[in-house]
Write a protein that binds this DNA or RNA. Sequence first.
DNA 1: ATATACAATGTAATCGATTACGTTTTGTAA
DNA 2: TTACAAAACGTAATCGATTACATTGTATAT
Lengths: 343, 343
Amino acid sequence: MGKITIHDIAKKLNTTAATVSRALNDNKSISIKMKEKVAIAAKEMGYERNVLASNLRKGKTNIIGVIVPYADRSLFASVIRSLEEKVQEHGMNIMISQSHDSYEKELRCVETLLQAQVSTIVMSHSKGDNPKDHLKRIIDGGTSLILFDRPVEEIKTHSVTVNDYDGAYKAVTHLIEMGYQRIAHFIMDKNTPLYKERYRGYKRALKDNNLVLDPSLVIEVATKIADGAVAAEALMQLEQTPDAIFSSSDFAALGAMNYLIEKGIEVPSEFGIIGFSNEPFTNYVTPSLSTIDQKTKLMGETIAHFILNKKDNKAEIKQFQSVSLTPQLLIRNSSNRKQNLKE
Amino acid sequence: MGKITIHDIAKKLNTTAATVSRALNDNKSISIKMKEKVAIAAKEMGYERNVLASNLRKGKTNIIGVIVPYADRSLFASVIRSLEEKVQEHGMNIMISQSHDSYEKELRCVETLLQAQVSTIVMSHSKGDNPKDHLKRIIDGGTSLILFDRPVEEIKTHSVTVNDYDGAYKAVTHLIEMGYQRIAHFIMDKNTPLYKERYRGYKRALKDNNLVLDPSLVIEVATKIADGAVAAEALMQLEQTPDAIFSSSDFAALGAMNYLIEKGIEVPSEFGIIGFSNEPFTNYVTPSLSTIDQKTKLMGETIAHFILNKKDNKAEIKQFQSVSLTPQLLIRNSSNRKQNLKE
DNA sequence: ATATACAATGTAATCGATTACGTTTTGTAA
DNA sequence: TTACAAAACGTAATCGATTACATTGTATAT
């Protein structure tokens, strides 16, 4: 018995499709008796609403489009997971699209998702300083836009980010509290706001603790283990070597740490290291790597909150909110000198 | 200028929506001239096909539903990534749904995706020996089903799995080649076919090398680091302790390794360890953990291949294919005794 | 008792694209 | 020239649900 439609139900009940539709949607102008009859008949006949038809008529779907650089990066995977968990309870679906950190692909992703008529686009936009026209087009077309992870200042819309400045500040302050004096910094891409913010937190923490910023200790490094090792080597070549590193990337931090250990430098007693992102491996390496947790689960939940609120409360649509989550310092062995001394 | 429809284009060109539709779909009964005119007008007017309407009429979408226990588990995240990369080139979209390894949630996922009228459901079904009626329902309803990671024997459909038996066999054979004699095995869930297969590979490898299976060396362990440590402790309490572990879980393997190292047992010189899955952390721990890579990227690509093939080649629909990928042995430091001796 | 309101349902248009079927025009074989 | 085929396009139904706009019937107010 292929597809049962509301017309079939109407025929069986000697009424019309309009009434059945209204009954199924719990419309107030339908009597309770009729609603019951329809509900029973629908169940009996195994009716299932054709979502496509419904959405076509209503001009909206309940699909949320998500654009991320790569779906398997731990931050994005985690956000996708918690977002999906929250919205699926409300009958919404998640559609994934990957931008590979490329502007061109991001444009394609937006196009695809708009074509699919998603009701909301949730995205972490690709790196670089590209035009934001496509973001405006999303909003102008009536689709709501929620940016996360990487904020875009030029666009007025909802956003959920982590306070990178605060995370960096906490990390560096922690190193200073542990007694490290010359703290180097690995910055990834100087043009990306996110890294700029972390750099700002680094500088501020130094200043607040009366430490001078030595530009030779700030190195541009790629988010790779090998590059972290190279950078560490460069640092140790300096006349005045550092005694700690705050790396904006866990991977680079690990590379540096392994290099130092190999060179006989003890971590954390001689040298402190802290990364950023709380990548899954950081807790398992030796010594375990201190890092900044970005609250990815909360991030997904906050995004979901925006979406669900918008659904209920239309008044809120116009006020765009930017939530900046407070990251968490995870003190592990790579920087925990005091504890080690105690032992 | 809100939404342009084929009717608007038709009006502008003094023709009908039917002609425009056919022209846009490159129908052979439309003249080249007309096709050109339509194409130009469509571009000029900024026309975008309403996918909902199109799909409603055609009765099919180009959405692929994916059901996984958790989207952020490395295997699933990786498969999702490579699957999306492949199918997006063909204009198809991926919809994600998470079963949390619960049978009830899995039913809901199936329901949701069928409602969304996905053309294909790709799933790694939840653990346990539950009824498979919902899988049959998917197929009977005309939606194609592709199972991956965890095969279901009762259902005739496409499937892409990794040869767990082979992976286990390779792992254990490798340990034996490295000179380990008493090899323990961590099995997770004895009722899950996947673990049974690995166990079978373990037994076979022992047999082929004339080693006796000691049941006391086969322990049921959860996929957790802590449990791996507990299990290792139990093993070292035996009268005849093992000198190697083949763990069906990287996490348990790591827990065991850390426990042994803490107890002063040297890995790999005194004790060999190999895990399974190539979890992201395995390459970064010390010593790096040997493991079995499950070819997740290839898995996603193979799934995509099935989907895209089916699209073109209808003849293939009826022949269900089961592809079993060959996993790869990754020899790292936790088991590489020979290399260590050389040094 | 009459007017008015509202409850409950029906009618038909609509969302936008696709397609079975019909019509006209042009080409070409007999 | 007739006839038949194919090319090129038009007409209208269709996919299934929703909803603006009637319509009918009943209850309440005056």
